[in-house]
Design a protein around this nucleic acid. Structure first.
Lengths: 245, 245
DNA sequence: TCGCTCATTAATTTGGAAATTTTATATGAC
DNA sequence: GTCATATAAAATTTCCAAATTAATGAGCGA
């Protein structure tokens, strides 16, 4: 008997109230989101193979929507696919981490500057709200639902910063790269014991927030860079640890 | 009897010698590239519906690889898909044009600067070669094989500029946005009569090349911006013309 | 004439079986 | 023992038909 997939796949979307995304209208789309979450939050670890039969059983869908979902994820570089040799979760390398983080900065420097310049009251309000809920959530140690919830709020805050930039493409690319980076952070969360995380991320976020509200784009960009570079450093350290083990 | 698709779909890859891309190993992949080309080069015009039966007949493939290809294109924003209402070629709006062109600049400014800093002799060589073949190709008037060939060389030159930037993500995103922009340029080529194109694009490209070879990144970036902004202006003008007709 | 409901038609979407390709295993020659 | 070749097993990829969903239009009453 074949061993089935070792993961607990994420449930079909009985939509959690905190995420107000457009409900998927097709099975393929739903499967895409479920797989995406499971990859981004590390349930499907980097490098692991994605065999159609196992996934079909685990997610309870046919082959067609499954392949469609995997194909989409391949375009986003969340999974890799080689010729007739199937799909696997994209592996993580140190070079990738650096590249993604620096490229995020290239885009977000511009988007944040524009957003600060153009943001109106509703932008400010949403930003303050995003920060508040993020700051009141306990920083999770180790994987689990709390970690996912925190990560979602974290994403919301960062996207809220850029929301008023006026460029759909910049928002889209920033989101794409955010999710790539999230995957790296999950490696960190999974592999490194909690006590080592001694950064004060709340205050890092607050610095960005304050500068943004003060409409000081130079300071906001500087704070953002500091935040990202600190994350990069931690992830790289965790990656070395895990590759040594 | 149903009217079949009005286009002559691009041939299966009996690979033309000038494109040294990795040969597609699956039908889905091949179909993806054929469709992509036909969308980017304007054979499938913006907004036109992509019905599975028609495409199946036109490209002579089954439904599964077709959907897989369309799904991938949807992630790239080259086609749109709504719930259970199928796929269509993504429409073009003036706002899109501006957004894509400005976002290209955000990425390419950085990538070009890095490339100029890090480029070695083989980078220079490849760059010079790309420029040469581009400059000797007659600028095509109206659609056709010559137009596609020119566009391919044009793409090669622009990517050669960035090739040494050291960031896979920046290269990938630049390429993605290049193809988006190409679609807009095709609208221009299709709708505007040739005599109106009085720009000296060769000299625009030469200015970028010379600055790059002189390792003068400030000047190269300035020339690139000039080149893109001129293109943007023309595309926007053509778009207004065509929407007025 | 307009608006509504309900059947009819046309399209997309999905599941699974057949075909193809890769990977693993066994057999034999050197 | 090592390499090459042939065979078997496993996996991916594709085709196609059934199921589902949206679009269309006729009939009917106000």
């Amino acid at each position: 008997m074949k061993r089935s997939l070792a993961i607990q796949p994420s449930a079909p979307p009985g939509n959690s109230p905190e995420t107000a995304e457009a409900a998927p209208k097709t099975l393929a789309e739903a499967t895409y989101w479920r797989l995406r979450s499971d990859i981004v939050w590390g349930k499907l670890p980097p490098g692991s193979p994605l065999r159609s039969d196992e996934l079909r059983a685990a997610y309870d869908v046919g082959i067609s929507p499954l392949r469609e979902a995997l194909s989409r994820l391949a375009v986003e570089q969340l999974v890799t696919t080689v010729g007739q040799r199937g799909f696997r979760v994209a592996p993580i390398t140190a070079a990738d981490v650096l590249d993604v983080m620096e490229t995020r900065l290239v885009i977000e420097r511009e988007a944040l500057t524009r957003s600060i310049k153009a943001g109106d009251l509703s932008w400010e309000t949403n930003l303050v709200a995003s920060f508040h809920s993020l700051s009141r959530l306990p920083i999770p140690h180790g994987p689990g639902n709390a970690a996912e919830s925190w990560a979602r709020h974290h994403r919301n805050f960062h996207m809220a910063l850029l929301a008023a930039c006026g460029s759909d493409w910049q928002l889209r690319l920033a989101g794409l790269l955010f999710d790539q980076a999230e995957r790296y952070s999950m490696v960190r969360a999974l592999k490194v014991s909690a006590p080592k995380l001694t950064r004060d991320t709340i205050s890092e976020h607050k610095q960005i927030l304050d500068a943004a509200l003060a409409r000081n784009s130079k300071a906001a960009v500087a704070a953002l860079e500091k935040h990202y570079r600190a994350t990069t450093k931690q992830v790289l350290a965790a990656l070395q640890l895990s590759s040594a083990s």
